[in-house]
Design a protein around this nucleic acid. Structure first.
Lengths: 348, 348
DNA sequence: TTGTACGCGTTATCAG
DNA sequence: CTGATAACGCGTACAA
């Protein structure tokens, strides 16, 4: 591999000049630049990223920390990642999939991270990864708020979980539903905690009580029930326990499909017997499902882009004032899986 | 940030010794190691990844090159990426999402890549990225074979596209289907080219001719028809042109769902009027679809893992002999979207 | 504008 | 098994 000295020698200029034409930090005469570029092409020279990083102390890469121990991507993750990649590329940053493997690696973290900052998806309460970033002094922004002791100040992007659950309940209750089962995300994630509380509160605000069996949480990835989450719960509560449930809120499209199947196996129908509402699924899946699924669009791609923008602010790449906590709006998209129920008298 | 010298000084050893206890490349006495580690913890010291890379010439990261200009992940991508990440982590490697953005960045490749090798997903014919890697001397393995001029020797993982299409045709024709429409992937990808040829050959082997209108290709991502690929084609061929089609092979689950919708809109049913066969969709989606979808499992996760293993061989991390081209088997998973048709006499 | 030391933090080499 | 020193390739003041 050609080095900067080789280019300098052949182009009859100094290292510094070559450096400048590549970094463009200082102006160089047209003539010189041409000559340098020509020689570089000829020698197949490109600046060494690592050496440059060593002195600039910038790696031009950000880490993307996928949910704890999770290696399954839902539509939310997929679109979020798209948003991150696109936005990062815009600022010249690359994205390093930054993972804490399930099976402990030999010597974890025996070296510093070659990243300038990180986006942490879906932190859990007292997330170990957050502590690590915090200690390692590396700038980060989370998707969903941080719930770690001794960390009170942190930047994040999120949907307004309170407003969101309130809107959903408003929508469902407005259509006559009082017995709503909530298939929440994994209980350790802070967004999940927020949503559970918000859900209960939203129902209470409408004079409705939420019983314990009406809220469930997605199992850990490694558990065998993970892929079927939604099926067993539906069969159990509606079928075996014969509890009254007129509407179900599912955490993602996969869960929704499981529910759909369970309901079919119970010889019930959507939305005839029970309504189904999805929080953030893949749009085309929702549309092409039968019936098409009414859902709340969390705008994951926008969340991804915003999280990068926030990080760029922290890194000083983006100048000016900025909000440390960005809220992205969730929008209800009506399709055909929720129906109005009850007679006038039922609704009081 | 503490540096190695600080640790050396406080632990009363030399830099070299500190280096050794961290890299474990040379044995160190227990006593010394303890002391060094203790001081390191105290100083919050971790070796600087960049400085280390500069001298070892290893970044301990591999690039994962997503399909050209594509920012949409199908089930195949998702699972493939999972396989890559997991396997890479096993060898202590990180994964850099290595993308050629759609909107050209200012000065692309003005610096060397901070990766030791790369996995290139779904190369196209004369893929520009492949040429880049080739010139840049960076080891890479592709998913799907390379079709670039002046590159004849390259390592790759793939399914056996010939065998695969043959098996699918065997399966479908065996059930009486003669008029099969193939909704292929994007025409530029080499796997797509392979499959088209294999499909035609497989049909010919069975005495069947494939007309032009029976093969379609997924539009580019940026085109507006991308998300609906499968719908228009089905409506057009079966509905408007009234061509006889008894079975459809769809490239992925999204396409399959679009087809399902089109068929419903045509007042036809699956598998009653037309059978549907999917190449590599998300299993839980396939199962939970109605009807559940018969598909060919390409084992994307396994492909991902194997591609990394191949790369590790090239990087010298893995020792010993190895095949330069690994074939992962595709398995047909029967569900309920393909039916047997025709009377005895029809089949001759 | 250009050339020249020097530093970035580590590992490799070679004595001891 | 440990210590001293020379690379590694580039950016950057500082001087010219």
């Amino acid at each position: 591999m050609a080095k900067i000295d080789d280019v300098a020698r052949l182009a009859k200029v100094s290292k510094g000049t070559v450096s400048n034409v590549f970094s463009q930090k200082r102006p160089t005469s047209n003539e010189v630049r041409e000559r340098v570029m020509s020689v570089s092409r000829q020698l197949n020279y490109v600046p060494n990223h690592t050496a440059r990083s060593l002195v600039t102390k910038k790696t031009m890469a950000i880490g993307l920390t996928i949910p704890h121990g999770s290696f399954f991507f839902s539509a939310f993750h997929t679109q979020f990642i798209n948003g991150v990649i696109l936005e990062a590329a815009y600022y010249g940053y690359r994205v390093l999939l930054d993972i804490i493997p399930v099976h402990e690696v030999k010597t974890p973290f025996l070296t510093s991270y070659p990243i300038d900052g990180a986006v942490v998806m879906r932190p859990t309460a007292n997330d170990e990864r957050i502590n690590l970033m915090h200690m390692g002094q590396i700038p980060f922004v989370t998707v969903g708020h941080v719930m770690n002791e001794n960390i009170e100040h942190s930047t994040s992007v999120d949907n307004d979980n309170v407003q969101m659950m309130s809107n959903i309940c408003e929508y469902l209750v407005g259509k006559g539903h009082k017995d709503i089962m909530f298939l929440n995300a994994n209980e350790h994630m802070t967004v999940s905690i927020d949503r559970k509380a918000s859900f209960i509160q939203a129902m209470k605000d409408r004079g409705l009580d939420v019983e314990e069996h009406m809220i469930h949480h997605k199992p850990e990835l490694n558990s065998s029930e993970y892929m079927d989450y939604g099926y067993e719960e539906t069969i159990d509560i509606l079928g075996k326990q014969k509890k009254k449930v007129t509407a179900i809120i599912a955490d993602d499209d996969r869960t929704a499909f499981s529910v759909l199947n369970a309901i079919k196996d119970l010889n019930l129908s959507v939305p005839g017997d029970v309504s189904l509402f999805v929080i953030c699924g893949d749009n085309s899946m929702m549309v092409q499902s039968n019936p098409s699924l009414t859902s709340m669009d969390l705008q994951p791609s926008e969340l991804g882009a915003q999280s990068v923008r926030l990080l760029m602010h922290q890194l000083g790449v983006l100048q000016g004032e900025y909000d440390e906590n960005i809220i992205v709006e969730g929008k209800i998209i009506e399709r055909n899986s929720v129906s109005t129920i009850g007679h006038e008298e039922d609704r009081k």
